[in-house]
Amino acid sequence: MGLLGMIFGLPLAPVKGLIKLGEVIEEQVETQRRDPAAVRRRLEEVERLREQGLITAEDEARAQEEILGQMMG
């Protein structure tokens, strides 16, 4: 059955590869989203936007809550 399975499974190999690639990308996104250095950079960016007057204090607080919420869970 190994040879038959390989013959019939060969056309599905690109699909299986694409699924695996999606899983790897998802894992990397989760890792970066929870990385303390990346979170700090995002928080600093929000603070910079507030200092430049591009967002309000309420927007800054909301963004900070969202960033920290994503990191925690």
Rank of each mutant, 00 (worst) to 15 (best):
R50W: 03
R50K: 08
I19H: 00
L49N: 00
E44N: 06
D59R: 13
M71Q: 15
E45V: 05
V15P: 03
G17E: 13
V24Y: 01
L3Q: 07
R34F: 10
L18T: 10
M1W: 02
R48L: 08
R48N: 04
R41L: 14
A13K: 06
P11L: 00
L4E: 07
Q32N: 15
V39H: 11
K16E: 07
A13P: 02
R40C: 04
T31K: 15
L21P: 02
L54S: 03
R48H: 06
R42I: 09
M6E: 08
G73K: 14
M71N: 02
A13S: 07
V15W: 12
E30N: 15
I7L: 11
E65P: 02
L4C: 00
F8G: 05
R62H: 07
E30F: 15
T31N: 08
L54C: 04
R34I: 12
E23L: 10
Q70W: 05
E65H: 06
R50Q: 05
V39G: 04
Q70M: 08
D59V: 10
Q64K: 15
E26Q: 02
G17I: 10
I7C: 00
G9D: 09
L4G: 00
T56D: 10
E51W: 13
L12I: 06
Q28M: 12
L10S: 01
I7Q: 04
R41K: 14
G5V: 08
L49R: 04
K16M: 09
G73S: 13
L21V: 03
R40D: 11
V29A: 06
E30G: 12
F8L: 09
V24R: 03
L54H: 08
L21M: 03
A37C: 05
Q28I: 11
G73I: 05
M1K: 01
P14D: 04
E60G: 07
